[in-house]
């Protein structure tokens, strides 16, 4: 080895040690956090937040309630209410009013059409919804799948119809002080006597049904759209499914109440929604605060 090569070696060594020193200063982070230093626990936590996410929140709640609770709530809603109403029909009985005293024009033709469109597609929504909730009983497959498609189509039509219904009736559906009295006597349905009941154009029960089916229906449409499109975070999806089930059970319950009241409990109620006329006696008793015109 001659002198010149020793010199080159010395310069090379000097330069490389300088570079290493500079590297150590500027890239300290890189040396401290080399792959070997990254703990596997930290990595697993990162994987969990990316893959599992917030599952612990609503995911856990959803798998706690969906296997049994939701179905039980729906079951008891559609079994207990008809039973209670059967007892009511047998013990207290329906109310019927004479049309001799005259008739009051109650529902305009437009509101009747809007009502019946809502009625048809809301019935479909309830029936197909229940079909899906109790899908096991039908064995799933094409029948329950068709129910799901009908549910979606009916929802689209109801979502257009319900806002119109809302605008037609919202003025008469605002809460009034006498609505509390209506609740205290349960709308007079617990007695056979024909005493005037404190209610305007619509009684307090009808008002709840109205707000639940329009505003609640809006929430159903919103959560339902999320469940249909999957266009949101999984966490929001789980929340939507939970809300949709609880609210759905409440709506199914009030739907049954509405059916009983209109078809059985008050004779002639169905005709009034077909012809638009209510008996004057009925209006004086069940809607005593109503001023026509």
């Amino acid at each position: 080895m001659n002198k010149s090569s020793i010199g080159i070696c010395a310069v090379f060594l000097a330069l490389s040690s300088l570079a290493a020193a500079a590297g150590a200063v500027f890239c300290q982070d890189q040396f401290l956090f080399s792959p070997g230093h990254e703990s596997i626990t930290v990595a697993f936590r990162q994987f969990s937040s990316l893959i599992v996410g917030d599952w612990q929140h609503y995911g856990r709640l959803f798998i706690t309630w969906q296997p049994a609770l939701f179905r039980q709530i729906f079951f008891w809603t559609i079994v207990s209410l008809p039973l209670v109403f059967l007892l009511h029909y047998l013990s207290i009985g329906p109310k019927s009013f004479s049309h001799q005293k005259g008739e009051v024009f109650y529902f305009g033709v437009f509101s009747r059409i809007v009502h019946w469109i809502a009625a048809v597609f809301f019935s479909l929504l309830v029936l197909t919804g229940l079909t899906m909730v109790f899908g096991k009983l039908f064995g799933g497959g094409a029948f329950v799948r068709s129910a799901r498609y009908i549910h979606i189509i009916s929802a689209l039509i109801f979502a257009v119809d319900a806002p119109i219904m809302f605008l037609i009736w919202v003025k008469d559906m605002l809460p009034m002080p006498y609505d509390l009295k209506w609740f205290l006597i349960m709308g007079g349905y617990l007695s056979r006597a024909k005493r005037p009941v404190p209610a305007g154009r619509f009684n307090a029960g009808q008002k709840i049904w109205f707000w639940l089916s329009t505003l609640g229906g809006g929430f159903m449409a919103w959560t339902g759209y999320q469940m249909f499109s999957f266009d949101v975070q999984t966490e929001a999806l789980r929340f939507a499914a939970i809300v949709h089930n609880f609210l759905g059970a409440a709506l199914a319950g009030f739907f049954i109440i509405h059916l009983y009241m209109s078809l059985f409990a008050i004779k002639g109620s169905l005709q009034s929604m077909l012809t638009g006329y209510k008996s004057l006696e009925e209006v004086e008793i069940l809607h005593s605060r109503y001023k026509a015109g």
Binding site: I51, V52, W55, G59, F62, I63, Q66, M132, G135, G139, G140, G141, V144, R145, A147, R148, M227, F230, T234, L237, R238, A241
Partner: peptide, 17 residues
């Protein structure tokens, strides 16, 4: 797949997506 109705509940329940 003959029984599945595509409701998506399994996706909501699964921690692994």
């Amino acid at each position: 797949k003959d029984i599945c109705i595509g409701c998506g509940y399994c996706f909501m329940a699964c921690p692994f997506g």
